[in-house]
Write a protein that binds this DNA or RNA. Structure first.
Lengths: 338, 338
DNA sequence: CTGAAAGCGCTTACAG
DNA sequence: CTGAAAGCGCTTACAG
């Protein structure tokens, strides 16, 4: 790259000092109107833009935001990333993306990198391994280097940091309540992400709903597995032995699997069984049948997390950790047609 | 951030010059074994890592690779990004991600940013608007600044730059040929990405297959639209008036829509109609029915594109533009069960 | 109102 | 073998 013109060269062409050029371009009130005009014209003519590396070195900042997502197996994290990128760019920051692949070791390695002064702050949704092993030291170390960290999505974690996510408990509670109000009571739960804290919260929402809405909860109707194959077997088994009127499924994969298992048994959705699941907005309406889903507004999650991080970077609020909840919305499609 | 120790501080602690510390740490043969040892020990003790911004300023490089993807509406580009990120990190580069949202204006703005010295090179899949308006000046300008540019995925473009993608024509040809070998001849085509050059290539593959395999092509069996709704109407219309044994669908959305329209008419897949489509590996097997797909190996696309870009950055081959084709693979699932 | 100087944290040709 | 000096491109306190 380069061949780009520098302050020094502009100064020479204008026969003024580098300081004067710099101040003119940065709108310092010290410089005379006339000089400012001359400088700006020449700068525009030569398409001058400051060298960001130099500016950052001087400022002791990087102009970068690091984002670590655990996976890209569905569009959820991509959408969060989209929200972050768009707003960050508008604010003059670049987004550096990392994928931890649900691995603690990789996540640590990435965080180590970031601590080398690659970014001014970090937005992270921790890997499942991080969460199961409760190994958070690497993240705390980052804050010791004064690199602020904001957690998003996977926020059911015992960490004293800013957090942005959805109310996992409430969203499932609402789903059960909705079905209950339609006079269904045999409501199953399918979970393929048992490792994640947010699964616990969602399951709790399910249990709470049963308790508070005076439904009797049958443990046999809860399917919680980490593996697709086992999930499928258990679902088959469940449908052999129990009558089910509806399923609430807690994640993307289990939602698709649930729909598929039901149809393979020649049961009809929604006539025989209803489904409410966590699927993404782009795919839910195109499935066959389309599936009623809980919209987590991933873009908003990203935007909100970024906003909090920016505030931290600018030290605008050195107060206690923030905890922001994005409201979910239930979007009704075929699978809950009554 | 900061509070990180610098060369200067290390030098002071060791009572040697900054140069000596720098050289010791960088493995210069000039320094005595003993000094190197002392320096390295203290550096390790203090967890020293060089300030990348300073190193980059000195080197006149940024250590960053910029990637522009046009959308994130399915996981294809996320997977490409995954391939890029993983390899880039191993090579000591950071990946800065941008999403153009299929907008030429946004793409230009992002490229303008990158030209300010944000990254050492660019990997881009151009926006659909860029492609329809054939507005490529901004990309050429980048190469004038000596920032190399490598195109990926959307490479059916009249530009003299490195390109990495799949053989769009051949992949569809193979799909038609496969169906033909199974004695099907009433093969429809569904395309929802008419704006993209690669759609033209894929359609050409379809036409070529018909010609070379002695099939008579009925124009009525080609559905090409830019809008989901229109696509759906035309599909319905087609199924009302024509007998179809199989569909080849050229993109993610049209594949899902095709499957859905067929099932809504109570036709069975694969018994009544077969489908081969462009869907991603993570979703294809979970659909109901699961759909035979053309795997484009997005991770390889990303890795290959990055490799070419790295070669350019290191000026290892100032030769003519490279043109690398990643082989596709047809993965058979329910929708082509015979 | 303008400019010389110091400095951000590093690397490297050059001198000793 | 070691170090002083220049310089990457910028900003900013300070002097004039």
């Amino acid at each position: 790259m380069r061949s780009k013109i520098t302050l020094k060269e502009l100064a020479k062409l204008l026969n003024v000092s580098i300081s004067t050029v710099s101040k003119s371009l940065n709108g310092s009130p010290e410089i005379s109107e006339n000089t400012v005009k001359r400088v700006k014209e020449l700068a525009a003519l030569h398409n001058y833009t400051p060298n960001l590396t130099a500016v950052n070195l001087k400022r002791k900042s990087t102009g970068n935001i690091a984002v670590i997502v655990p996976n890209i197996s569905n569009t959820f994290f991509a959408k969060v990333l989209g929200g972050i990128e768009n707003d960050a760019r508008k604010k003059g920051y670049q987004v550096i993306t990392y994928i931890s692949n649900e691995s603690l070791a990789l996540e640590k390695q990435i965080v180590e990198l970031i601590s080398n002064g690659i970014a001014d702050g970090l937005l992270i949704s921790v890997s499942s391994e991080t969460q199961t092993t409760k190994n958070y030291d690497h993240l705390y170390r980052l804050t010791e280097y004064e690199i602020p960290v904001v957690l998003f999505d996977r926020i059911n974690i015992d960490m004293d940091l800013d957090k942005v996510g959805v109310d996992d408990m409430q969203s499932i509670y609402n789903a059960v309540q909705y079905l209950r109000n339609k006079n269904l009571s045999k409501i199953g739960l399918v979970c393929g992400i048992a490792d994640l804290g947010l699964a616990h919260a969602r399951i709790e929402g399910y249990r709470n709903a049963f308790k508070e809405l005076n439904l009797s909860l049958k443990e046999e109707l809860l399917i919680i597995a980490k593996d697709n194959k086992i999930l499928k077997e258990q679902l088959d088994n469940l449908l052999n032995n129990q009558e089910v009127e509806a399923f609430v499924s807690l994640d993307y994969l289990s939602t698709l699997i649930t729909s598929r298992v039901i149809q393979e048994r020649k049961l009809r959705i929604p006539e025989d069984i209803k489904i409410i699941g966590y699927v993404n907005e782009d795919i839910a309406p195109l499935l066959c049948p389309s599936i009623t889903y809980i919209d987590q507004h991933p873009k908003s999650i990203g935007e909100t997390a970024l906003q909090i991080l920016m505030d931290r970077i600018k030290k605008q609020n050195p107060k206690n950790p923030e905890y922001k909840i994005i409201n979910t919305a239930m979007v009704h499609l075929d699978s809950t047609n009554f």
